[in-house]
Design a protein around this nucleic acid. Structure first.
Lengths: 230, 230
DNA sequence: TTTCTCCATTGACAAATATCAATGATCGGT
DNA sequence: ACCGATCATTGATATTTGTCAATGGAGAAA
């Protein structure tokens, strides 16, 4: 389970989300006072879909997955790298989590009181603008995702996920894929077996080099082509 | 194409979206001054994905569809009934439309200047809160949609869309389905032929009564069951 | 080291879904 | 009423994708 860890201060935090740069010193103080730090081991659930959400979460180290628990299987909405906050649409509606979050790697996070945050949205227009901008970016990401998931075939979806992992999550090529094959399947909306099969195909065709959890995109052009032809 | 029509005033508009009740009289005046009315015939495009979005749209009569133009086919994100505004995530990011909108029935709408709106978000916290709340509601709707589209089989997806049409769009049972079969397919993420076939199956099983564009959900319990079992 | 468990992999098969082609129905314009 | 165009329907078939079952492999616990 989650463990409380030594508490620092938001003021000298090297790892606070850049949205907090829009806050004045006293405003940041409000956040700092209503905050505590927790650590999670890989695999542990951070919060669960359906439960109340009095706090939002700011990931300070590790890697987390956000996923919707659907009909028998999960859909991973996104992976989250530090430093980023995790705040769902329930904050402004029913105060419930609309997706679950779990640590993929050992992680640490700050839990921050939601009401303090919402108060700052009301009083600091720059902060509010930035918040809305970030929500909008997530919405755009969701749009791209739903189009990929509903209109592309499996090869295109796996290609998309490979680029996502390489460019956004592990920021490298080759990269060490710390998510499981099941997670890969949940990201691309298919069965685990299908995901594995397509990975193998890409390997056999020389598009990817795969050795256990290490993945190297050998032929990005061809992979991009596969992404676009669906 | 779109036609300009006689301009009224936001102040005595019986059909303004309820979010504007959060505005004071002078604030509503700002909206009123930067607004014009347009009418669209059924089938006409209101705005197109990828184009700049200096205005947002407030639908005052008719029925519109919001759809993403994907890889060879469209995905309908939602249908919009008056009175509701239509504002995409581009407003706060790249000032582009991230989906297209088209009139399904003959429609009228007000086009409102985006900057006036954004200015009010900065100065009126209640208005901003309500705006964020509505964005959040849409996000939650998108989540439900993506789970339905990616995790349910065709029968379940058609069942979901039938409830959506009956409860949210046409608010009646039976209802006159003014969208085409292709639209139905684009709403449920399948081919037109598959959508028609499942409609016919439901008809043969006595779950729906279908006569041309008139649909009557005869057995909501069984349809709900189909929705849930995927 | 041995065992156990979980995750990954593979193959065979079944189910779901799309595509293609043909036909029927409907509706506005003449 | 007639015509042309678009939309709806249906059947046959091909493709995509999932499921099931079996096996392999790596790491944790004894």
């Amino acid at each position: 389970m989650a463990r409380f860890i030594e508490s620092h201060s938001c003021f000298d935090c090297q790892c606070k989300s850049s949205i907090f740069n829009f806050l004045s010193e006293p405003e940041l103080g409000l956040i700092n006072q209503n905050r505590y730090e927790v650590s999670f081991k890989a695999g542990e659930i951070m919060f669960k879909q359906g439960t109340p959400s009095p706090h939002f979460l700011c990931l300070t180290s590790g890697l987390a997955k956000l996923y919707i628990e659907g009909y028998g299987k999960n859909l991973i909405l996104s992976l989250v790298r530090p430093v980023e906050y995790i705040m769902g649409p329930g904050i402004y509606t029913d105060n419930r989590h609309h997706y679950s979050a779990a640590a993929v790697e050992d992680s640490t996070a700050c839990l921050v009181d939601v009401n303090s945050f919402k108060q700052l949205i009301r009083t600091n227009p720059d902060f509010a603008d930035e918040f809305i901008r970030r929500i909008s970016m997530m919405t755009i990401f969701n749009f791209e995702q739903v189009v990929s998931l509903t209109q592309k075939q499996m090869h295109g979806r796996i290609a998309d996920v490979m680029f996502y992992l390489s460019e956004k999550i592990y920021t490298g090529n080759p990269f060490e894929m710390t998510i499981s094959r099941q997670d890969l399947a949940d990201l691309s909306g298919m069965s685990k077996e299908s995901a594995i099969r397509i990975l193998k195909e890409f390997k056999d065709e020389g598009i990817l080099h795969i050795d256990g959890s290490t993945v190297h995109i050998l032929n990005p052009q061809q992979l991009k082509q596969i992404s676009q032809t669906g």
